[in-house]
Amino acid sequence: MKDYHDQLHNYNTKPKVMLNRLFYIILLVMTMFSVFVLAILLYTIIRDSWGWFNWDFITSMPSRKAENAGIYSALLGSIWTIGLTALFSIPLGVGTALYLEEYSDKANHINRFIQLNISNLAGIPSIVYGMLGLAVFVRFLAFQRSILSGALTLTLLILPVIIVSSQEAIKSVPTNLKEASYAVGMTKWQTITGVVLPFSIPGILTGSILGVSRAMGEAAPLILVGAAGYINFAPKSVFDAYTTLPIQIFNWTSRPQAEFQKIAAAGILLLLIFLLTSNAIAIVIRNKYQNRID
């Protein structure tokens, strides 16, 4: 027994501590790699777009000559499609979440199937939604290669994101608040509009912003439903042909001339300004909201 204790006390912990330290450094480097990549990425885009990203670029139509090319039609196309997508997807997503959290009986097989189905839809590659849009909206409903087809396709794509985040927000509404409403004779819908939605709106908003920003950056499904690479007019209705920022960027990136890489970078800069702003807004709303819960 004495031997054992001696052994324990003389046990050299130094290698173990050194190893721990080494592991810590490796992990830190791995984590910082992402930060490093983000920095390089932003640096590259700003460097490449330097001198190309200006007011003329934003207000000009695309052109076969890089020096004259602008992103105006793509910017308008994105605003149209994303506006329409938000208009469709937020009510649909929040409505579905309300059904699943407030109306449906969770033990019911059909409702469990709907829930499972939504999780599965979230994992389907975006390009598959493009095929769905092509077959249903472009061909079957004959909306052709229009803004409407694109927006409907993007709606289905981001619906699972909005549903799941809205469900989380709705779940966080305390039961005793809902009881307070029911106890004064409110119907379920009156309780939803009077208590549930006002309380969960920050969470719903955060999820919706993230979902809609995702739609804004999507190119693959829109290529399948026929967003065009070259549009030199401003869209006037939802049935017009269109292009969007990511599609325009893809089009420029695919050209061999070095100048087009520069305007592609300028296009990316514009897209990132939109996305980073909306993400930042979402993060701020969420942080404020978390504080309220604490």
Partner: peptide
Amino acid sequence: VELRMKVGMVFQKPNPL
């Protein structure tokens, strides 16, 4: 709903909206 309009309830934990 009609019933709850006539029969009010106050809960264990205060639950202001």
